[in-house]
């Protein structure tokens, strides 16, 4: 990487928006180039100075009582039910649609549970494909659009379970597990806690994300590519993704379920 490239990438570097590989290249250049180091330091100082100035400006500070007043004002605004507010169905119109109502009742009584389960499975399948995509693009190819961040930082910004993942040690009964990397990454708009390790010689990802967990570990359908198993991770949804045979991936998911759920609880 040349100095010219560094100047072009400096903004994205400071905003932590570079791909992991590009970031490493830029850091390697900075190790050997005092001019670029000084340039980046200047830009960083400018950004930090602005942040500090903004957070200290008295003119921008809210009144001390503003937050308390807001709380009192907001509490009555809480909707009775967390429903979609855009479309209101009037009671009268529903009552006028007797046939629709009757059909709905029959559907709910007879097939509602099946439909709900099918929807859940279908949703889980879609999430499993995304998890496989994250494994491929993050752990294998390093081609994520957004730079991964430390799990500790993700914990501070997005919730404690991400930070807890930083200290999770996957147990491996046969001792063939080598830890490689941990971070939090984003793939197709979804954030993951990502633990990468080598298991039985294969690059393997443990991915934890927000979502309804399955009751037990299950293999997810996959036409080609790595095998994927979903697993409960406390109140989060977990996936194991690896280029291993499907039974091995399922067994690994079964082994991890209990310690992972306990660790993230």
């Amino acid at each position: 990487m040349q100095c010219r490239d560094v100047r072009e990438l400096a903004d994205s570097f400071l905003s932590e928006q570079l791909l992991v590989e590009t970031n490493h290249e830029l850091l390697r250049h900075l190790d050997t180039c005092p001019n670029c180091r000084a340039d980046i330091a200047g830009r960083r100082a400018l950004r930090d100075g602005l942040r500090t100035a903004f957070s200290r400006a008295e003119d921008l500070r809210p009144r001390p009582e503003f937050a308390a007043e807001l709380l009192a004002t907001l509490r009555p605004s809480l909707p009775e039910r967390p429903s979609e507010p855009a479309k209101e169905i009037s009671r009268r119109s529903v009552l006028q649609s007797w046939w629709a109502l009757a059909a709905g009742v029959v559907l709910a009584a007879g097939g509602g549970l099946v439909v709900r389960n099918a929807n859940h499975r279908s949703r889980l399948g879609a999430l499993a494909r995304e998890a496989a995509g994250d494994h491929q693009n993050c752990a294998v190819k390093f081609t994520l659009a957004e730079r991964p961040i430390q799990l500790e930082e993700a914990g501070r910004r997005y919730g404690a379970p991400y930070a807890a993942l930083a200290t999770f040690e996957p147990p491996a009964a046969d001792g063939s597990l080598e830890m490689l990397e941990r971070h939090s990454c984003v793939y197709q708009g979804r954030r993951y806690g990502h633990v990468v390790f080598r298991y039985r010689g294969a690059l393997t990802s443990l991915l934890v994300t927000d979502g309804t967990p399955p009751a037990t570990p299950e293999l997810e359908p996959s036409d080609s590519g790595p095998a994927v198993a979903s697993l409960p991770a406390g109140r989060f949804l977990g996936f194991i993704v690896a280029d291993l045979d499907r039974p091995s991936v399922l067994r690994l998911a079964q082994t991890l379920t209990k310690p992972l759920s306990q660790h993230l609880a």
């Binding site: 807001l70 004002t73 907001l74 605004s77 909707p79 507010p85 910004r157 997005y158 919730g159 927000d210």
Partner: peptide, 24 residues
């Protein structure tokens, strides 16, 4: 500014079910 923040939070509260926990 106070009015703007209040309206923002009222709207956020109304649509809080759309917020994905774990995101920013």
């Amino acid at each position: 500014a106070e009015d703007l923040v209040q309206e923002t939070l009222v709207q956020a509260l109304q649509s809080f079910h759309r917020f994905t926990p774990g995101t920013n």
